[in-house]
Amino acid sequence: MEAFYLEIRTVHIAAVCFSGLLFLVRAIAGNIFRAEWTMAAPLRYLSYTIDSVLLTAALMLMTIVHQFPFVDAWLTAKVLLLVAYIVLGSYALKRAKTRTARLVYTGAAVAVFVFIVSIARTHNPLGLFSLL
């Protein structure tokens, strides 16, 4: 499977980009432009599909590079922040009661997302802070 390392890594990164972009578009359209299509079934299923691909590629990469959450600190941080991102994203899109709250959650989710990406780039649990 190592033979496919670069392809899998590319798929993983592409899925991360699509996932983040889709979330941002839905959050902005719903919370700023008050669009009603943001929770439409096709969009929700597209999101699930992208996240499934992302997860699968992540598991494959873990096995290839032999680095695992709760063994390697940077992956542990990624997994824990991923949970936080999912919760914040859920509140940003539907669970928070007011528009202002949803916008705050959107900002927090985006910040966490950027931080996760920085951890992935640096392979350090401190992410972009490790560069300071």
């Binding site: 499977m1 190592e2 033979a3 496919f4 699930y48 599909t49 499934s52 691909v53 997860l55 699968t56 598991l59 494959m60």
Partner: peptide
């Protein structure tokens, strides 16, 4: 073989759902 192991991973989306 690489293709067979790749196909094992292709289980993940279906198994997750």
């Amino acid at each position: 073989s690489p293709i067979m192991e790749l196909l094992v991973w292709m289980r993940v989306p279906g198994d997750t759902i």
